[in-house]
Amino acid sequence: MASAPSKLYADDVSLLMVLLDTNPLFWSTSSLPFSNFLSHVLSFLNSILLLNQLNQVAVIATGYNSCDYIFDSSVSTSRGLENGRMPALCSNLLQKLEEFVVRDEQLCKEGSENGLASSLLSGYVAIMNAIFSAQRSMVPIDSCYLGSNNSAFLQQASYITGGVYLKPQQPDGLFQYLSTVFATDLHSRTFLQLPKSVGVDFRASKEDSRKDGRPLESRRKDSRKNDPNIQLASSV
């Protein structure tokens, strides 16, 4: 399948959706501790908001069983320092994230009897739906993948939608990767050298792909239109 033609953008205003994989199965084995990972991501979110007054950021956490919004820059108006020390963005996001992880864990206990097979299948359909509608509305899906093997799913998603797939070689310098590659607005992408896909695995995905670490998936788009994909993406 050919990758999507890119839209022309007149300015550098963007809406960034970040999907964080909080799957404990992956993070317990990762070389990069989750807390370090989060601090890289928080700086990244701050940098997006810093670049343009009109930029917006939303963060969705995807856990083992469910997913939910944990941050939305258009809702949280109280910026600045809260409780004396912690910046508002951090404290809001961390609090929501914690609530989410607890909820997700409980769901996991309740759902263990029902078996996961059916949810996996519907999950697959939903993911493909999300990818195709992103392609249709020319919303690039960027993937930053921290696991050991490559994710065929995300490779394909990024390739089809004209986004960037990147597997950082040195996860300790994650912020540099994020700011260099993923913070690029769509306007600048037309004349910047970005990592190209080296070979996409086009085979149909195996079912176990869900167990791979999928720490960060970001998509950006023109902020002036409504995103039809958010609903689909949240059922991942």
């Binding site: 700086s43 701050n46 600045g80 320092l81 963005l89």
Partner: peptide, 12 residues
């Protein structure tokens, strides 16, 4: 200055 902003986020 910008590094500080990155860590602390926007300050009013």
């Amino acid at each position: 200055n910008l590094q500080k902003l990155l860590v602390s986020g926007e300050v009013l």
